[in-house]
Amino acid sequence: MSSTAEATEETSGDQEEVATDERREALVERIRTELGDALIDHHILADTDLWIRVDRERWVDTGLFLRDGLGCAYFNFLSVIDWMPSPFGREMEAEVDADPEADTKEPEAMQQGVAGGDSRFQLFARVNNVIDHMGITIKTDLDDDTPSIDTWIPAYDGANWHEREAFEMYGVDFIGHPNLINLYLPTGFEGNPLRKDFPLLARRMKPWPGIVDVEQMPGDDEEDETEAST
């Protein structure tokens, strides 16, 4: 992982970049031979990172193959992304959260990130090969209304707590998890805090104090001054 893509081009030179690309391409090929059509998409950031997206049905198989077939024995993390745009309009200018019910404007279209996607909830996990120093981020799409998926514990023991976290934060059901209860939140907590439609009630009451951060600096041009004074 270099700090910038620009740095990659400058420091490592073309030859090395091609070489590492080949390394990651070869990995993708090995995964494709194992999983076949279950490998839906992949994305390579040259000399930096690799993303793959797999079919939900083959999630556990993918984990087992990564661990045994590719030597990615190191489990890094597992989490979920909610791709729904926030209904609260949290922008720099917004002093308080917008009320999603009073808002009449059309919600923005959902746009998934690297390696694509076609659902609101996307599960993603990362594993590393500590011998080859290679990391892979694996994504899979979950059902919009009742997200559920098989547990990854057979492949990686460490997934236990991460899945409990994803369960309480996003309401994802992990089938076969031995102890799927809240990890952080008190037992009676209602809602899934990290879903985009979960409101932060304190923000409804108080204006965002972050707004004062736009302060006048010496040497600012006229436009900024008028902006700040209004």
Binding site: Y184, P193, F198, L200, A202, K206, P209
Partner: peptide
């Protein structure tokens, strides 16, 4: 954490 969902203010 003034706007957190889990912190007592």
């Amino acid at each position: 954490y003034w706007d957190s969902y889990s912190v007592t203010k």
